Computed example of a mutant assay.
Amino acid sequence: MNSPVTVKLLIADDHPLFRAAMCHALQNSEGAVLLEASTFPETKALLAQDTSIDIVFLDLGMPGSEGLNGLSEIRAEYPDVLVVIVTAQDAPGIVQRALALGASGFIPKSASVDCIIDAVDTVLDGETWLPEHISATTDASSTLDDFSTRLSLLTPHQLKVLKMVADGLLNKQIAYELAISESTVKQHVSAVLKKLGVINRTKAGIAFKNAMRTDG
């Protein structure tokens, strides 16, 4: 008799009660192995330690992650890990940007246990899961040419450089922080501008911050 397939799920949320509710909702799923993280650095540490994690349920408001930054980092560094956004914010603009950045689903924190289980099954089947009231007003294909989509073309190093550019760091400071040469930083910046279709680092930084926003 074949043993059930193991599915490793990481619940990344800073609210203990919500993590407990998610664990309760998922504990009876066949083959589910549950992990928990209360901060974004802890989430990344678990992903680095355990390459068998299948899905991350990511709260947008976790400590250490601003807006959609956490989603973009995970998708850039761990492209094989599926990310399902779990949040109280479900404005269409946020949902569209999250989908463009590679989210595999979007679960409101008010979702029922049945909805959460259905979301897991749908995502594991390779499809995107959205609750009915969101999917009725959200067209993921409409964001294919959006700046957020172009962000997915960046390598992990390029994404790190872009974040530092957006924070106002100079090439010399970025080189120091990443322990690389200034010429390498310049190469990364040049590649970033080309991939994002912007003319200078200032516009790249502003566009990045706008894409990461979750206030509408």
Rank of each mutant, 00 (worst) to 15 (best):
I107M: 12
G31S: 10
R150I: 02
T155R: 00
L58R: 03
M164N: 08
V33K: 09
L169Q: 14
E36L: 12
S183Q: 12
V189H: 10
D139R: 10
D90F: 07
V198P: 15
T51C: 11
N69A: 12
S152P: 09
P156D: 01
G61W: 08
Q27R: 15
L10S: 04
L46Y: 12
F40K: 01
T43D: 00
I199P: 03
E36V: 10
T155E: 00
K172C: 04
A21I: 02
F57T: 03
I134K: 04
F57N: 01
S148T: 08
T202P: 11
L82Q: 07
V165R: 01
Q89S: 11
T128R: 07
L9F: 04
G102W: 03
D54H: 14
E182H: 06
K209L: 06
I107D: 04
K195C: 03
R213F: 05
L71T: 01
A32H: 08
V81D: 12
L151N: 03
E182W: 09
R150K: 12
A136S: 15
I53T: 03
D146I: 04
D13Y: 09
V120H: 10
I107Q: 07
P108V: 12
T138H: 06
R97W: 14
L35A: 10
P4E: 06
A21D: 09
H157P: 02
A45H: 07
I174H: 00
R150T: 07
V198H: 13
A76V: 00
R75S: 02
T6P: 15
A136C: 07
S3Q: 11
F40L: 01
Y176A: 09
A136G: 08
I94F: 06
Q89M: 07
L154H: 00
G64K: 01
Q158Y: 01
T137N: 13
L130S: 02
K163A: 05
T137Q: 11
R201C: 05
L159F: 06
S29H: 12
Q173Y: 09
P156S: 02
A211S: 15
I55R: 06
D118E: 14
L35Y: 15
R97V: 03
E132G: 13
K203A: 13
L99I: 05
V161F: 01
H24F: 09
V192Y: 00
L26A: 06
